[in-house]
Amino acid sequence: MRKDRDIPRAASDGIPPGRVRTLWVEEPARRYRLPDPVRTAAVRAVIIVAVTLVQAMVALLCSLAGSWLAFPMVLSTVASVVAATWGVLDVWVTRQVWRQRHGVVSAPSSSARQVRQSRRPQRLSGA
């Protein structure tokens, strides 16, 4: 039975010859995880949009086939498009509300800070 240590490695691996290569390497996340209410709204929106796309495809195929089901499917697809639009807007509104309630830190840029510092003496001397 061969072990991972027995497998010859290329010099470009970057792993010392005595160490075993692990299967899983944990890396830090590049972006933070979405807050729970925003993630819930996003999952709901994705499901609604997916159902809408399936309905649109069924409505198209029924229309091409000349089926009696085409008209009800088109009507339900229109209703689903309205619901999908609501779902996507719900994600956006939920994200904005979460940001306002939980106080996301926003720091002014250095150029804005310089403008404020340059105006400060003017305000104090003009009052």
Rank of each mutant, 00 (worst) to 15 (best):
M1I: 06
R5K: 13
D6R: 04
A10W: 05
A11E: 07
D13E: 12
G14R: 11
G14P: 03
I15H: 05
I15M: 04
G18D: 10
E26S: 07
R30D: 08
R31K: 05
L34F: 07
P35K: 10
P37A: 04
P37M: 04
R39P: 00
R39L: 13
R39W: 09
A41Q: 06
V43D: 12
R44H: 02
A45M: 05
V46S: 14
V46R: 15
V46W: 09
V46Q: 15
T52D: 09
L53G: 15
V54S: 09
Q55N: 13
A56P: 01
A56C: 02
V58K: 06
G66A: 09
S67A: 15
L69T: 08
A70V: 07
A70R: 05
P72T: 02
S76Y: 08
T77A: 09
V78L: 15
A79Y: 04
V82Q: 03
V82I: 11
A83L: 14
A84P: 02
A84L: 05
V88L: 15
L89Q: 13
D90Y: 08
V91T: 04
V93C: 01
Q96C: 08
V97L: 12
W98S: 06
R99A: 07
Q100V: 06
Q100K: 13
Q100S: 10
H102K: 05
H102Q: 03
G103I: 00
G103H: 15
V104Q: 10
S106T: 11
A112G: 00
A112D: 12
R113P: 00
V115L: 15
R116Q: 13
R116V: 11
S118C: 05
S118K: 13
S118E: 14
P121N: 08
P121H: 09
Q122M: 11
Q122Y: 11
R123Q: 11
L124T: 14
L124F: 11
S125F: 13
S125Y: 09
